[in-house]
Every structure is written in structure tokens, then in C-alpha cells.
């Protein structure tokens, strides 16, 4: 089973994301900010990170920078998932090492599409 770390300071968003990702057969762990997420990654890297941008303590962009420098840190697919919906932020995320980018609000179709886009799930995988 592939693993996905959901990083978002809203517990509601984490819960929605978890339900969708479990439907896509991911094993989900959660973190409420970048620094908690980094601790988890130092312990064990996930296959995917669904990553909010604005969070207390450490934001998503800073977290990604640290994670990418960990041994093997180039492996996880990072999919931003944020209300920041302008080209400047998207471009910054991509040049900082993000693989995909979701502009909130999101739903299961968008998550499935974006995860398929980066090869985390087969294209057109149906929900169970």
C-alpha cells in the first residue's frame, strides 16, 4: 500500500483528504504543520505528500525545501493543496520541487486526477 502524508492546519481538510485518499487505497498519516511533517519524514518518507502552504510554525514551502534535502527526499511526490491560486505561487512551488498543484477547493476527482498525473495511481482508476 502506498503512503501519503497529509499536511494541513485544518483538521476538517485533513479529514476530507484522508477519506478521499483512503478511497484511492493510500495509507494516510497526518501532520498539522510543516515542522511536525518534517519530523515524520525524518523517521520515514512517504510516497506522496499532500501539502498546504500557509500553516503556523513552518509553512508548506519551507517544509518541502527541508524534506527534499533529506536522504531520499527527492523521491516523494509533492502535491500542493492550497488556497494560493495565482501563477506566482504555482511557479514558485514548481521551481521549489513540487510535482503537482491543487487550488482549493478540491474534491475527489481533482485529487485522483492530480495523483494520476504524477504516476501515484493508474489513470482512470475508479473509486471503490
Amino acid at each position: 500500500m502506498k503512503t501519503c502524508l497529509v499536511v494541513d492546519d485544518s483538521s476538517v481538510v485533513r479529514k476530507i483528504a484522508r477519506r478521499i485518499l483512503e478511497g484511492l487505497e493510500f495509507e494516510v498519516t497526518e501532520a498539522e504543520d510543516g515542522s511536525k511533517a518534517l519530523e515524520i519524514c525524518q523517521w520515514k518518507l512517504p510516497d506522496a505528500v499532500l501539502l498546504d502552504w500557509n500553516m503556523p510554525v513552518m509553512d508548506g514551502f519551507e517544509f518541502m525545501g527541508h524534506m527534499r534535502r533529506l536522504p531520499g527526499g527527492d523521491q516523494p511526490k509533492v502535491v500542493f493543496c492550497t488556497t494560493e491560486n495565482n501563477v506566482a505561487h504555482i511557479a514558485q512551488a514548481l521551481s521549489g520541487g513540487a510535482n503537482e498543484y491543487i487550488m482549493k477547493p478540491f474534491n475527489k476527482d481533482i485529487i485522483a486526477d492530480k495523483f494520476a498525473q504524477v504516476g501515484l495511481i493508474p489513470v482512470g482508476q475508479a473509486f471503490v
Partner: peptide, 23 residues
């Protein structure tokens, strides 16, 4: 819409071939 450009379109293509106006 923001929803439509997130269905099937790789983010790199969105940045490259689209111009954003508001939402």
C-alpha cells in the same frame, strides 16, 4: 473555471498555456 483547469491538465501546462484572470 478553476475546477475545469484542474481536471486532467498537468500544472506545468496550466502555467505555460493559460492566463489567469481572477477566478
Amino acid at each position: 473555471s478553476q475546477f475545469e483547469v484542474q481536471r486532467g491538465l498537468p500544472i506545468q501546462m496550466l502555467v505555460k498555456y493559460f492566463k489567469q484572470t481572477g477566478e
